[in-house]
Each structure stands twice: as C-alpha cells, then as structure tokens.
Design a protein around this nucleic acid. Structure first.
Lengths: 194, 194
DNA sequence: CCCATCACTTACCAAATGACAAGAAACGCC
DNA sequence: GGCGTTTCTTGTCATTTGGTAAGTGATGGG
C-alpha cells in the first residue's frame, strides 16, 4: 500500500503546518481506492468523502434540463476531490463524481474533518485555504469562459493538465469547455484560431 | 446611523448562532458607508474588508487581456461583499469592487475575522458556510453559462435580482452574462428566445 | 474472433453572437 | 439650461458555434 508521503507533503504547502504536525494529521486519513468507472458520489447522496488524490483522475458531472451530461470539473493527483456544497452543507449532491481510471488517495469524513478543524488551528487555516484556492480557480475559469474563445481555453487546459487527456474521452473535455464534441474536433484540427 | 438589526438577523440564518450570540458578534463589526462610484477595493491592493451589505449595490470587475472591463459579480443588500482570494490569501487583488450607488453596511477586518473564528466555534462554521454558499452559487452560474443560452440567463438574473437593474448600466450586466451590450439589447427587444 | 457500441471526425446548413458603425436618448457637469 | 459624454438601440455583415447526420476506426464483451 502507498504511504502517506504525498499527503504529508500536501499538508505542508503554504507553510502553515510543520512536518511533525503534518504526520500526525495524516494519520487521520485512511487509504481509499476507487476503481475505474466507479462512483465516489452520485446525485441525491450526501457526500461524506474529502479525498486527497495520489493517483488517477476523477470527473465531476451533472445532467442539465435536457438530460445532457455536462462535465463540471476534473480532479487529478495532488488535488482534493470534493463536492463542496454537498459535503459541507450536508445536502444531496446535484453532481456525480466518477473515476476515469484507477484512483488511489486518502480520505476523511465530514465528522473527522470537523474534529481536526476544532482541535488544530493550523489545520483549520489549511482547510480554509483549500476552499479558497478552489474558489479562486473556479473564478478564473468563469472569467476565461467569458473572455476567451473556446480554442484558447482548450489550449490552456491542454498545457495545464496534459496528463488528463490520456485518461478522458474528448467529449468530456468538450462539455467542460462549454462546447460540443463537434466544435472541439474542429478546434483540434487546427484552423480554429488566428 | 443604522443599527445592526439586519446583520444580527443574517448571523442567525442557518440556525447555528443564537440571538444573544449574534448580538455579541455583531458588536465587532463597524459601520461602513461607500459613496456612489467609490471603490471598496482596487486591483493591486490586498483586501481587508469583509462587508455585510445593508443597502446599495456593488460591482466587481476586472480587465481582460484586451483591456476590456468585465463584470465578475454583483453584490446587493443581505449579501457579503468580498473578494475571497485577496482577502483570505492576503494577495493583491486582480479585481475592483466599486459602489454602483450609495452603500451602507458593516465591516470587519481579516484580523478581526480570524480572532472571531478562533474564539467562537459557531461563528467559524457560519463563516465557512458563507464561503461554501458563494462557491455553490458560482458553480451554478458556471453551469448555467455552459448550458443555458444568454436570453435565459438574462431572464433568470432579472427575476432573481430585479432591484439590481435600477442601479447598474446594462453594459455591466452584459459582460456579467458573457455577451456584448449589443446582444443584450437584442435579447431585451424580445424576439430572441421563445 | 465477431459484432455492437463508443469515440472521433467531417460535412452541411441554421442559429447565435460579435465587430463595427451610426443615430437617438439619457445623464451629468458647468 | 445647454452641451458634451455616456448609454442604449438598431442595422449590416462576418464569424463562431450548434444541430444533425454520416462515416471510420477503436474498444470491449461474449
């Protein structure tokens, strides 16, 4: 079984948590494996998984009014896979979280997380910063969706998450970018821009 | 001067904080007036204002690569006006926050907020829920931007924030919706969508 | 190994939106 | 109250994107 090295490293990003503290905190997490195509969360369920990913990719998606499958996010190694609203508000999820390939990570429950927040100031700040970084990333994505043409957004995703493309069908990328698989195909062909 | 009644009420939403506790917490906030067109935050500054709005509307905006003014958000009465990334991460803001009309609200600083989080479990949970609700709202907006045509997004905004339209030029609404003022004008004319 | 399904590409046409420009209306400043 | 600026609308045309459908290649289960 993998050890907690990456998790411990992750807890130290930002410098709020020292190595020995990180090692203690990491003990609260339990190993979690998610098989390919397995669901970490389904719509209607209340999420109770806060998962730091060592390996693998997850896709978040929802169905729109027309029954269309829309990708709302991707999660990869080094990231926390989490449906924020359902997990923190204890409400039924509107989204699905599904493994694109075999995933390996570390999990804690809502109750455990709260106990850690309660007992450890440093971890509380760290937890908040995870939330804030996710918020900021979503805001950037929103701004790019409004200001950048689809071809540019595609190129940015390709540059920032190249490994993702080895594990997900392009149609999932297309709906994440807000376009159809047809348009993405045209963009990839090349003539698209300039 | 306005009293803290609305703020005290707001602190009790969600039921985590009782009336007497809310009254204590509210004492930490100080009255804040923002004149029309005044900036609560400018790009490059580190935000230190966590402001609960009693009255008035604020607009958040950024300039894209082409120097275009893009509206990233609106804040109205009953909401917390806040640039999350700059305030919590103590980093220079990429956005401006400007009053669309005379605003009246209640403010605390980053330091004060942290002290309250530290000393009061209930307020800590409340503060997290403010963040989580903002996150969820942004996610919904992102999904709507991808799945709904501009005409529908316009109608939804009109229904959910009718008062906003009495205080902001339509061109600001247009960039918020991700379209040009020309397109918004055509949508408003009517033929646009069933 | 075969066949059904899925993923991706390509083509054609329609709809939505943008770029640009001109004009009307509202607003604000002096 | 007049004048310049800003806001909003409208028109024309180009571009982007979507809808639909067909076709090819890859994939996977039996």
């Amino acid at each position: 079984m993998a050890d907690r090295a990456q998790l411990i490293q992750f807890l130290q990003t930002g410098g709020r948590i020292t190595q020995p503290q990180a090692e203690e905190i990491a003990q609260e997490f339990t190993a979690k494996t998610i098989g390919k195509n397995e669901f970490l969360l389904r719509a209607g369920q209340v999420s109770d998984d806060y998962v730091f990913l060592d390996q693998g990719f997850l896709r978040a998606f929802a169905y729109d009014i027309d029954g269309q499958d829309i990708t709302t996010g991707f999660y990869g190694p080094g990231q926390v896979a989490l449906e924020v609203a359902s997990f923190f508000q204890r409400t039924p999820s509107l989204e699905y979280l599904q493994a694109l390939n075999e995933c390996q990570g570390w999990r804690i429950s809502f109750t455990q997380l709260n106990e850690l927040f309660h007992s450890r100031n440093d971890f509380r700040d760290f937890g908040r910063s995870v939330l804030v970084r996710g918020f900021a990333a979503l805001k950037n994505r929103m701004l790019a969706t409004i200001t950048e043409p689809a071809a540019v957004r595609y190129e940015q995703l390709l540059r920032s998450q190249p490994a993702l493309f080895q594990h997900t069908p392009l149609k999932y990328v297309a709906s994440y970018l807000g376009i159809t698989d047809t348009s993405l195909s045209r963009i990839r062909k090349g003539g698209g821009k300039r």
